[in-house]
């Protein structure tokens, strides 16, 4: 299993992408599977750290939560840009001590934070586990520390660590 398919998730992703780009047919399934096997071997040659997803049920919870948050913050940021935002809004940096240290969990957190309008991941100091975040509407820095560590950090910890 691990010899032929060193990265099963990656290979599955390649097959799905192949079928989406072409047509769903047995021929393309075979061709896509062949490409996926080669890609898996090539990835193994690079020897990346292997992410391990422990809790698939929590992945669903995380996805739903992120999509809802993105909708909410889209509305909030659009409102501020169009001028109806709160008076006295100020943007600023927040330093957050992160609880998670797994590289994959950090990467997913970076994607979530940046894909959500209103927060941008600027810098991460791996030595101290400290994240520099820029927030568009910064009312209370403590609240953002809570949000990142509790709302996402705990779920990511359960999924990856």
């Amino acid at each position: 299993m691990s010899r032929i398919l060193p990265h099963p998730l990656l290979s599955l992703g390649v097959v799905i992408m192949w079928l989406l780009l072409n047509r769903v047919s047995p021929g393309h399934l075979v061709l896509g599977a062949a490409v996926a096997l080669v890609v898996g071997q090539a990835m193994a040659a690079l020897e990346p750290s292997r992410p391990r997803i422990r809790r698939w049920d929590k992945v669903v919870v995380l996805c739903v939560r992120v999509v809802l948050d993105i909708i909410v913050s889209n509305v909030a940021v659009a409102r501020i840009i169009l001028g109806g935002g709160r008076a006295g809004r100020r943007a600023g940096f927040v330093e957050i001590d992160l609880d998670i240290s797994d590289p994959t969990a950090l990467a997913v957190l970076a994607v979530i934070v940046t894909a959500t309008p209103g927060t941008a991941w600027i810098d991460y100091d791996a030595a101290h586990g400290r994240l520099l975040l820029h927030v568009f509407d910064l009312a209370d820095p403590e609240e953002w520390r809570e949000t990142v560590n509790q709302r996402y950090g705990r779920l990511l910890k359960e999924i990856f660590e």
């Binding site: 840009i81 943007a91 940046t114 894909a115 941008a120 820029h134 568009f136």
Partner: peptide, 21 residues
């Protein structure tokens, strides 16, 4: 927003509207 906001760090939030929803 990219056009209107005043500082660079504020502007960095604007394109995420287009790239998310």
């Amino acid at each position: 927003g990219l056009l209107r906001l005043r500082t660079f760090y504020e502007r960095i939030h604007a394109p995420t509207l287009g790239s998310s929803w």
